[in-house]
C-alpha cells in the first residue's frame, strides 16, 4: 500500500511543458506512475509524449479524473497553482518548487487544510512508493520495495539514506520528502501518523535538520502515539548559529533549533538516533535482525 501516492494515483503535472516539468513527468511515468494529464495555461490541446495538456486543472480533472497534482511551477506562481489544484477538487498536491514566499505559504497552508486536502512541500523532492508510483524528483531506482517508511526534510540526504539501506538489503514502503521551507504542507507528525496506520510499514526512519521545532514536536508525538519503532537522524550538528544553511528553514535562531537539542528530544522520546546516515542504516539493520556484512 504505502502512503500518499500508490497504484491509485492519477497524476496531473502542473507546469508540464517546462523543462523540469516535462523531464520529471516522463520520468515518473517511466517508473510506472499513472500520469494522466498536464496543465499549462494557454497550451491546452497539446501533448507531452502522449500526456494530454489542459489549460486549467479543473478541465484536466473533468477529462481524466486526476486525483493527485505535482506542481512544477516557478516560485512566483506556484502558490496560485496550489490553490487552483485544490479548488479543482484535487485531494493530494505535491509541490517541488523552491523559493515560495513564506507569507504566501502561511495563507495557503490554512486554506488547503480547511478544504481537507493533503499538501506535501513546497521545496520537497516528492513522494515515492517503491513498485507503485513515484511523484516528484526522487531518483526512485535507489530504493527497493520493503516495509521501512522514510520521512525527511531533505532531498539528497534521503537518497543517501535510501542507498545505505538498500546496500544492506532493506527496502521501503514509502519515501516522503516533506521539504525544507519554514512552512510546509505536511509536517513530520502528519506523515508519521500515516505510516503508523499503513499496514505495509513496520518501521520508520525520520530525517530532520536544524531550524524550527518540528522534530521536537514529532518526538513527543511519537512517544504518545506510535507503536511502530522510529529511528532518527538530524543533520547540522556542526552548523553555526544565525546562518541559513541552504534550506530557508534551516537556521538556528538564538538557542532554539539546534541539532543537539533535537537529538536530545528524540532520544528522550525513546527514539534511537544515528550520528550519520551510515550509522542510521546500521541501527535499522540491527533492529530488523539483518546481518551487517
Amino acid at each position: 500500500m504505502g502512503i500518499i501516492v500508490g497504484s491509485q494515483t492519477r497524476l496531473v503535472v502542473q507546469g508540464i511543458t517546462g523543462r523540469e516539468g516535462s523531464f520529471h513527468a516522463l520520468n515518473n511515468r517511466r517508473y510506472g506512475t499513472n500520469v494522466v494529464a498536464g496543465v499549462t495555461p494557454g497550451k491546452g490541446g497539446q501533448d507531452v509524449e502522449g500526456i494530454p495538456v489542459f489549460d486549467t486543472v479543473s478541465q484536466a480533472v473533468v477529462a481524466t479524473q486526476a486525483n493527485t497534482s505535482l506542481v512544477f511551477v516557478p516560485p512566483r506562481f506556484a502558490v496560485d497553482a496550489i490553490y487552483e489544484a485544490v479548488d479543482a477538487g484535487i485531494q493530494t498536491v505535491i509541490c517541488v518548487t523552491e523559493g515560495i514566499p513564506a507569507h504566501d505559504m502561511l495563507l495557503a497552508w490554512h486554506w488547503v487544510r480547511e478544504r481537507g486536502a493533503v499538501l506535501v512541500g513546497p521545496n520537497c523532492p516528492g513522494v515515492c512508493t517503491p513498485g507503485q508510483a513515484n511523484v516528484g524528483i526522487i531518483p526512485a531506482d535507489i530504493f527497493a520495495e520493503g516495509s521501512v517508511g522514510v520521512v525527511s526534510r531533505s532531498g539528497t540526504l534521503t537518497y543517501q539514506l535510501g542507498k545505505e539501506l538498500a546496500d544492506m538489503g532493506i527496502g521501503n514502503s514509502s519515501i516522503v520528502g516533506i521539504g525544507g521551507d519554514p512552512i510546509v504542507g505536511s509536517n513530520f507528525i502528519d506523515v508519521l501518523a500515516r505510516f503508523e496506520e499503513d499496514p505495509d510499514t513496520d518501521m520508520v526512519v525520520m530525517v530532520g535538520e536544524i531550524g524550527g521545532a518540528e522534530e521536537e514536536k514529532a518526538a513527543a508525538w511519537v512517544a504518545d502515539n506510535m507503536n511502530k519503532p522510529v529511528i532518527g537522524y538530524v543533520a547540522g550538528l556542526t552548523a553555526p548559529p544565525g546562518k541559513q544553511m541552504g534550506h530557508a528553514g534551516a537556521i538556528i535562531s538564538g538557542s532554539s533549533g539546534t541539532a543537539a537539542s533535537k537529538v536530545e528530544a528524540l532520544r528522550e522520546a525513546g527514539i534511537e538516533v544515528g550520528k550519520n546516515p551510515t550509522e542510521v542504516a546500521r541501527i535499522v539493520a540491527e533492529q530488523r535482525g539483518v546481518t551487517v556484512g
Binding site: 525527511s152 532531498g155 543533520a235 541552504g246
Partner: peptide, 23 residues
C-alpha cells in the same frame, strides 16, 4: 548538492576528526 546532504557532510567531516572550511 542539496542542503541536507551538505550539512550531513560537514557533520561527518567533524566526526572523522576534521573540520570543514565551508558549506
Amino acid at each position: 548538492n542539496g542542503a541536507g546532504l551538505v550539512m550531513s557532510t560537514l557533520d561527518v567531516v567533524e566526526q572523522c576528526g576534521g573540520s570543514a572550511a565551508n558549506f
